[in-house]
Amino acid sequence: MSVATPQAAVRTAVTAQDVVKVYGRGETAVRALAGISIGFAAGEFTAIMGPSGSGKSTLMHCLAGLDTVDAGTIHIGRTEITRLADRELTKLRRDRIGFVFQAFNLLPTLTAEQNILLGLELAGRRPHKAWFDQIIDVLGLRDRLRHKPSELSGGQQQRVACARALIAQPDVVFADEPTGNLDSRSGAEVLDFLRMSVKRLGQTVIMVTHDPVAAAYADRVVLLADGTLAGELRQPTRDSVLAALKHLGA
């Protein structure tokens, strides 16, 4: 763990070291990540921000083991995921990572409850009853469990996705613009829940967002520009985020 975080005593959940990701070859090659080194502390809510095309999604995909890197290493906990083969990566994602995407989070053929339990079932694990009830109640999904995704509102769908991400108590939850498709009230519900899961349950959450309001829910904001780290904020507010972004020229 060579990357020192400001709070060195805190255990790091995810670490990236000199990560390079290049799309394409020759003339048209794009360096989406140009040697990024960054660490994410366990039990912290981090927002990744930056102008469009700055490499936020790419970074998140690499950190989550969804995509391969061209150089550098990534650790989740003590596991160096950049060395893992597809099968082990799949198992890692299943057991130790949770996801919330911007859209299309749920399988249309399954009910809300089946969607929530899908990851656990894939891992062959049984849900913890009390934990399940707690999540369902906090997210207010109790009377929606038997519904198919097409019968749920966008906000409800995202809450189901959050429940699924958290039910397995993963090492880290990645969220790529989880509120991008929601109105401000539904968005606030989702963000409140993510924040609560960090504060009360010690969950680690890494979220990509464009929205300074959403970023203000985080403990820390990391700013990207052209595939490199361009600064960071602690205890951000909407205004401090806006200011930092302005400074980046976004």
Partner: peptide, 16 residues
């Protein structure tokens, strides 16, 4: 395609 990707992200192996 997207559904398969989601399942893969959630931990479904290629074999599965």
């Amino acid at each position: 395609t997207r559904e398969s990707a989601l399942l893969r992200a959630l931990g479904l192996t290629r074999g599965q």
